[in-house]
Design a protein around this nucleic acid. Structure first.
Lengths: 331, 331
DNA sequence: TCTGCTAATGTATACGTATACATACGAGTA
DNA sequence: TACTCGTATGTATACGTATACATTAGCAGA
């Protein structure tokens, strides 16, 4: 933001008009060769940098896309950001990040609709009715990535309900009859959708479910409560790989062996889940699908004014990745 | 960026001047109560949002800080970003992220000095001489965080050389005589500094060092080469916790037990290192130091025009966190 | 009644850039 | 010579907002 020197200053030094300086920056082919070098010399000498605000005021383009996601401490959100930012940058866009504060999920929507972003990529956040509405009102194009509960808008995501179902089916096949669920709040992003899929299927198969929602606020407390029961579960499914990893961490600390004493299941198929020291059985996208790239591509198309007539409602069938954190029920 | 309606439109509808609309937005106390409500009604009706570009063109403030860091796939960078962004947002600043492409580390500096950011937070990136120079030329205040090799500028960081030393000393105390080092390129961010500290100390204690630089490009190849030697090391130190974790993943895949067959040591004391399924011995900051917060605080002070007369050159003494990935040499 | 003061609002301008339009000049053509 | 055309550059304006300054009305005090 430090404005030291303007194109007018450059023009004065080079002995040309401001318009010519602008042409040197944007349409060099329209300016005489020696004028070009003369102006360039002045640019160098004064260390001139065009003012991005003025530029975007005229062009009505900021070159910025906004990212809306949950705390990056959650590896899932970190991965989402990392991949999306990389693709956007590849396409010449700068990314500005807006983190949703779980304690006041609504405020971030105000900030983002006041931003100068040309498009908004919405990650798996806590949905707020008025928030989504103000997104719409902002007139800025937006795309959901990782959440599939906003069916009327454009999105690409793992089928979250089906992932919950698949988790329950798998544990049922392993003969587990008492199973735990670890997740964030019910309305927290995609957690709720995954939970409902899990719950319905587990119930319909006669399994007993110990649910530990609100795992973000007091993980240890919530898991202690689950394990203290007489009929403690023999398997735990978590809404995300990160929570599954945290569960394993907890269980080891309390003397349990995985998977002998407890099967643990994640959702997400994060890079971390494949590491040998964790080796987490998980549910995720087919390896050939890259929803981050797909979402950014769609968003940029919208920004560029292409409104593809295909509907962008990709709810992708999950796959099961069996590793060493799960085993048949021993009891 | 979608400009649907301007303050002029609001003014027309409300039957006032554009200046009054502006006053309603910024100095409500200077406007008559009924005018205020009248204008506000028009704002609601038209769904007016002030244009950030025009606003920052005048105010010379963008409310944006830029973050410059390496790929977020590296958990260390992810943590750096997560924490910094959270603090900046807390203070009312939006963060825009610029990721340094390892294959062409210089380009990101051009992009960042053309941005409208009011300040730049520089993470542990690959230093490029001309890049640092163009940072200086941009006139935008900047602060380094996590790298301490740019002594002439403001920074806060773990003492990277001392961390390398501490790693070597610790392995020496455990009677290891052949030790490996895993890190990025020599001039890659803080890796080089940590490596030199490690190398000097290890040498001076008569240890034999197998170095595997360039671990980012071909981790498995580089580590296979190290383990294939007749005098393979009995302990490995890594430049970061993430690389240490990757080494453990590799070693497990090749049938080694940690720490019986191999001690593994990280640097960073990342949250992940403390997880029981990894339990990585590592070297890091004293728990009471939060360099991310310190860096952001300093940067915001600079932005606000406070040039504190204290020198911001914090090279922090590392601590050793002993966990289960290290043990005395068995041979 | 006149002066002076305050509150409320309007008018005019500036921020730095991009671009439509106007101008000037030279070369080519009939 | 007159006319056209293309190239290179300058002039003027617009983007949307914030604010210094001007203006007006209302009211208190002399």
């Amino acid at each position: 933001m430090a404005i030291l020197v303007s194109s007018v200053d450059v023009a004065k030094l080079a002995g040309v008009s401001q318009a010519t300086v602008s042409r040197v920056m944007n349409n060099p082919e329209k300016v005489n060769a020696e004028t070009f070098t003369k102006v360039n010399a002045a640019i160098q000498e004064l260390n001139y940098r065009p003012n991005a605000a003025a530029r975007s005021l005229i062009s009505r383009k900021s070159g910025i896309v906004a990212l809306l996601c949950g705390p990056l401490e959650d590896p899932d959100n970190a991965e989402f950001s990392a991949r999306s930012i990389a693709y956007a940058q590849e396409k010449g866009f700068i990314t500005e990040i807006h983190i949703q504060d779980p304690t006041q999920p609504g405020t971030v929507f105000e900030a983002i609709s006041r931003s100068q972003a040309e498009g908004i990529l919405v990650g798996p956040i806590t949905p707020v009715g008025t928030g989504i509405a103000s997104l719409k009102n902002s007139g800025i194009p937006f795309v959901f990535c990782g959440a599939d509960q906003h069916g009327e808008h454009r999105f690409v995501s793992l089928d979250n309900a089906a992932s919950g179902k698949l988790a329950a089916d798998y544990l049922n096949n392993l003969s587990h009859t008492v199973v735990g669920w670890v997740g964030g709040g019910r309305n927290e992003s995609h957690h709720g959708t995954r939970y409902r899929g899990f719950l319905e299927t587990a119930k319909s198969q006669g399994m007993k479910i110990c649910s530990a929602a609100g795992a973000y606020s007091d993980f240890d407390g919530v898991l202690s409560a689950m394990m203290a029961r007489k009929d403690r579960p023999t398997a735990i499914a978590a809404a995300t790989d990160a929570l599954a990893a945290q569960a394993i961490d907890f269980l080891i600390a309390y003397g349990y062996s995985i998977p002998e004493d407890m099967s643990v299941l994640g959702i997400g198929n994060s890079p971390q889940s494949a590491m040998n020291y964790l080796s987490l059985t998980t549910i995720g996208l087919p390896p050939d699908r890259d929803i981050f790239k797909e979402a950014v591509t769609e968003l940029l198309a919208l920004i560029h004014g292409d409104f593809p007539n295909h509907s962008f409602n990709e709810r992708i069938e999950p796959e099961l990745f069996i590793r060493n954190s799960s085993a048949p029920n021993q009891k």
